[in-house]
Structures are given as C-alpha cells and as structure tokens.
C-alpha cells in the first residue's frame, strides 16, 4: 500500500534563501509523525507547500494517490488534507460553534448537519462548554483547541498540526496530547510540528528532523534522541532543556 502523504525531493527557495532543500519522507495512514527542527528549519514552509499556500520550487507532493503540489488550497482541503496555523487564526467575530461550522460545511450537506457535526468535533477537543463564546475572547489554550477543531471539522484524512502546544502550560499540553493521541483511532493521521520534546517523544510513532531546510534524521523517538547529528543540531540551535 502506498503512503498517505509522500514528499519527494521537495525544495523551496525565497529569493536567495533556501528554506527547504531536497526533503523526502512519507506518512502512512494511522500514524502520528513528529516533525522537529530548530527555529527557521523550514517546518512551517513544508506545511505551507503541502496545504497549497506556497508552490514548491522543485519536487513533488503526493497525497492519497494524487499529486497535489499544483492544486489550490481549497482543492487540497476537499481531498482530505487540513492544516492548522502556527499563529492561530480564529474567525474573531464568530462564536466558537460558528467557527467550527464553517469547517463542517466542507462535507455537511445542510446547515443542520454542519451544526451537529461541529458540536461533535467541539466535544472531541473539550471545547463544548464554550460553544456560544465569541472566538476573539478565548484564552490561548482554547484558541489552540479551536484551531484544531476547525481543521478536524473539514473531515480530513490527514491533519498537519503546527505547534498546537506552543505557549501552553504542562497541564494544558497534556490535555492536547490526549486529544491528539485519540485521533488515529478516529481515522485521522497526524503530522505535527512541535518544539515541545516531551509531547513529540510521547506521541510520535516516528520523528523526522530537519535543519537548515534539510532532513538530517528520521526514526523512532528513541533512535532520534540518540542520533548524534540531531543532538548536535539542537545543541547548536535552540535550547529545549525544559521539555
């Protein structure tokens, strides 16, 4: 069986800057894969390309049997690949429930069904109690949950999570970890960018490491923790001792 997501020799240049360089990897259905690397490594840029916000300079992205690197963002979402934003983007004027209904309309044929589906998703991310709250007034932790709920409401096969735990307390992080851990059983495969090592190592079946746009390691969390190139990249880069 072929992979759900396959990235082949992908590259992205911004002017003279090489943000992503010759990166290849695959994500299989049902996995939770962690994508790590120091600040500016090119993680978000990879997500931008996979979700159709940026065109790759070179290389190919395949999702669920089709090549998607030339498709529009809505077309990619319709095929079942959804993403969250590192800097969350709630629809501030709308209530939490209405935010999620927007995503639910991706598959729901009627407003009534969109509403019902959105309510289910909100329960899944433990945000059901905030349905009627205007999104602008949410705390950071709740905004992160809402960000996930919106993406999940579109009925994806694969969700790209970009630092959904950044800036949260240990307790809040653990709650989100529980939510993420349950997703593969609900039929949602996960590729997640995360600086929080406790979360990445605890959740991932497999971890991919990139540094300066290049893939420098891939393996189980245990293998990655012992990989000399990875350790060097992290010691030379960001300090994640707290995690």
């Amino acid at each position: 069986m072929s992979a759900l997501l396959e990235v082949r020799r992908l590259a992205k240049q911004f002017g003279g800057l090489s943000a992503v360089e010759d990166v290849s990897f695959a994500v299989e259905t049902g996995e939770i894969v962690g994508l790590i690397g120091p600040n500016g490594a090119g993680k978000t840029t990879l997500f931008e390309m996979a979700s159709g916000f940026q065109r790759p300079t070179r290389g190919e992205i395949w999702f669920d049997g089709t090549r998607i690197d030339r498709l529009s963002t809505p077309a990619i979402c319709a095929r079942g690949l959804a993403r969250t934003f590192q800097i969350v983007r709630p629809f501030g004027d709308m209530t939490v429930l209405d935010n999620v209904i927007v995503g639910a309309f991706m598959r729901a044929p009627s407003p009534k069904m969109a509403r019902a589906h959105a309510a289910t998703i909100l329960a899944q991310v433990h945000l059901a109690g905030r349905c009627d709250q205007v999104a602008r007034t949410l705390t950071l932790a709740d905004r992160k949950r809402l960000e996930m709920a919106k993406a999940l409401a579109t009925g994806p096969k694969l969700v790209l999570l970009d630092e959904v735990m950044a800036g949260l307390t240990r307790v809040e992080t653990d709650e989100i970890m529980e939510i993420v851990r349950a997703l593969p059983r609900a039929g949602v495969t996960i590729l997640m960018v995360e600086h929080n090592m406790h979360a990445v190592m605890g959740l991932s079946d497999r971890v991919i490491v990139i540094h300066h746009g290049r893939k420098i390691g891939e393996g189980s969390p245990a293998q990655i923790a012992e990989n000399p190139a990875v350790v060097a990249a992290y010691l030379g880069g960001r300090d994640d001792a707290d995690a």
Binding site: R83, R89, G103, F105, A114
Partner: peptide, 23 residues
C-alpha cells in the same frame, strides 16, 4: 444561516483561514 453566509463571514474575518477550510 446558509453555507454561503458562513463562508462570507469567515472570509470577512480572515481570508487565509477561510481558504484553509476549503472555501
């Protein structure tokens, strides 16, 4: 209360976020 209405309000709030939800 319609799909188009929800899409429009989403677009008014944040075009990129609307795009990411398939609009």
């Amino acid at each position: 209360r319609s799909r188009l209405g929800f899409h429009l309000v989403a677009i008014r709030n944040d075009q990129d976020a609307a795009l990411a939800l398939g609009i």
